[in-house]
């Protein structure tokens, strides 16, 4: 049962170096929006004496988007900053949809994009869309930095590739192909016990050839089925070269079901889960392809969102 917060030290670091240096003290942690951290402290799941805010560090607030260049998201950028961005909406629709449908909506106003990824919670929506967009994270110790693809970012459990004395300073999304689209969808389930499934989320990216017929590139990601979002690589490679249509998407969806390890829960939950994985996989692929065909503005079919 949650408690009233105990007092803690709060340091507003002026630079990345100072922030990561402070982390060498035990009981210290970085703090951005606090959406995941503060409830965890209140519940007594974690305890920190010092929180180091990164929100005053210079140079981490950059946000830019351009269809030919990509999206840059600094570590301080709030989720709400993405919601009204026209290019994220048009060309990184999966990300747009994930952010737009965040529940509860207050998280958009408090939470950062980078923080949402670093929290490493397996049912979060934004990481799923980031997998579909092949995000690249920049990790820095204040002096040198290195890039890590999102596929390699999560290391099991709630672990990430962020090493000691490092922090994530930026996320980059590569530009989509000329005729490409993406989509994100999620669906909630009533939970019955602590470790029960309570959601499935999925995202896809589909690029078409010049004739807008055949698939030249695709990603398909399913969330809530493991420690971190799962790329369905078999389906992705099978889709390339196929005509973008029901047949290809249905078989990709079957591969998604096959790729997911069964849960240990009741059989009927397994059945619902498999159905949802199949349907969401097919839906996001179809939606992404439809957007690739039409360069559709996702705002116009917001009513189709789950």
């Amino acid at each position: 049962m949650a408690r009233v917060l105990q007092p803690f030290e709060f340091i507003e670091a002026a630079g990345v170096k100072e922030a990561v240096a402070a982390l060498s003290q035990p009981g210290t942690r970085l703090f951005a929006g606090g959406c995941d951290l503060v409830p965890a402290i209140r519940r007594g799941q974690v305890r920190y004496d010092t929180l180091v805010s990164i929100m005053k560090i210079e140079g981490l607030s950059e946000f830019s988007s351009h269809p030919k260049v990509g999206v840059k998201i600094g570590a301080q950028v709030l989720l709400s900053r993405l919601v009204n961005d026209i290019w994220v909406g048009k060309r990184w629709a999966a990300l747009h949809e994930a952010v737009e449908q965040l529940y509860p909506p207050h998280i958009r106003n408090m939470g950062t994009v980078v923080g949402n990824l670093c929290a490493a919670v397996n049912y979060y929506d934004v990481p799923v869309s980031m997998f579909a967009h092949r995000a690249v994270l920049t990790l820095s110790d204040g002096t040198t930095s290195r890039e890590v693809g999102i596929d390699d970012f999560y290391t099991g459990g709630r672990g990430t590739a962020v090493g000691a004395g490092e922090m994530v300073t930026q996320i980059d999304l590569p530009p989509p192909a000329a005729d490409a689209g993406s989509a994100f969808k999620k669906i909630y389930k009533a939970r019955r016990r602590a470790d029960d499934l309570h959601k499935i989320n999925a995202a896809a990216y589909v690029a078409l050839d010049e004739a807008k017929e055949k698939i030249t590139d695709a990603t398909l990601v399913i969330g809530c089925v493991g420690d971190s979002p799962l790329r369905i690589t078999a389906a992705e490679s099978a889709l390339v070269g196929q005509v973008a249509g029901d047949e290809a998407f249905n078989s990709a969806a079957e591969m998604a079901v096959a790729a997911v390890q069964p849960m240990t829960d009741a059989g009927w939950v397994e059945e619902i889960r498999s159905d949802w994985i199949r349907i969401l996989a097919r839906d996001v692929l179809a939606q992404a392809a439809s957007r690739a065909l039409s360069r559709h503005d996702p705002a116009e079919d917001a009513h189709l969102a789950y």
């Binding site: 409830p39 529940y103 019955r192 016990r193 309570h198």
Partner: peptide, 16 residues
């Protein structure tokens, strides 16, 4: 949602 084994409320925040 109440956990059928322990009686703990699982949906104990506005997140869940």
């Amino acid at each position: 949602v109440i956990d059928p084994e322990t009686g703990k409320v699982l949906s104990d925040s506005l997140l869940t």
